[in-house]
């Protein structure tokens, strides 16, 4: 594609750059090392996460299954990329693989009218707290996903859920941040990395494991064995 294409920000903002070379074969060869290195790092973190939290993953999934069996639901929270992790966990439960038992689950980032309404009128720190007050029931399980573990709205949302007798789970990265330090989560899983991407990749495995173990508890065959 030519550098003189439509609306090129290269020309608007960087007019001096149009003579810069496109990525050559040498650069592509260099870049091709990255996927191998990054995938190896994710694999290492997955094993590390399992060594530290394996048993707690098993007991947490069992508690979740018992709560769902009593009529509880999963309420999932997250910001940014973690909001998509929360939404993914919700649809894994609500629309499980064939043979699985559908479990009621809600992602509290879905309703943009609610999120922007609360954010605008009260503050972004309360977008989940207020929904927990309105929607939450004592048998519900509230899951917060965060890379940093420091999101104010997650700390407040999870804290409110715990005060109301719901089960609370946090999935974090780095050192777990505030979600690990403050008494808001019954179970706090930490992917100990400083790369947001690697954290999210291992977090996805972690919540998939939880959902697969929940299905096993209900007698459904997990998709992977």
């Amino acid at each position: 594609m030519s550098d003189s294409g439509r609306d090129p920000f290269s020309q608007l903002l960087y007019p001096m750059l149009s003579s810069q070379p496109a990525a050559g074969d040498d650069l592509v060869l260099e870049l091709a090392r990255a996927p191998l290195e990054k995938s190896a790092e994710s694999n290492r973190l997955r094993v590390e996460m399992l060594e530290e939290f394996g048993d707690e993953i098993v007991t947490t999934a069992e508690e979740m299954a018992v709560a769902f069996d009593r009529g509880g639901r999963l309420l999932a929270l997250g910001n940014g990329g973690s909001a998509t992790s929360a939404a993914d966990m919700v649809t894994e439960l609500l629309v499980p693989p064939p043979g699985g038992r559908p479990i009621p689950a809600l992602c509290l980032t879905n309703d943009i009218a609610v999120v922007t309404g609360i954010g605008n009128d009260i503050g972004f720190g309360d977008v989940f707290l207020r929904q927990i007050i309105a929607l939450g029931r004592p048998d519900d399980v509230v899951l917060a996903v965060s890379a940093s573990g420091n999101s104010e709205n997650l700390v407040r949302g999870l804290g409110e859920a715990r005060r109301r007798g719901m089960s609370t789970i946090a999935i974090c990265g780095y050192d777990g941040g505030r979600l690990a330090r403050e008494p808001v989560a019954d179970h706090c899983f930490i992917v100990r990395s400083s790369s947001v991407h690697r954290i999210q990749e291992v977090q996805m495995t972690l919540y998939h494991l939880l959902s697969e173990l929940v299905q096993r508890a209900f007698g459904g065959e997990p998709a992977c064995v």
Binding site: R46, L50, G54, V58, L209, E212
Partner: peptide, 16 residues
């Protein structure tokens, strides 16, 4: 726990 642990180990090995 042993049962669950065996499942997790196999699943993560497959993933990796």
């Amino acid at each position: 726990l042993a049962n669950g642990r065996a499942f997790l180990i196999a699943r993560v090995r497959d993933s990796n």
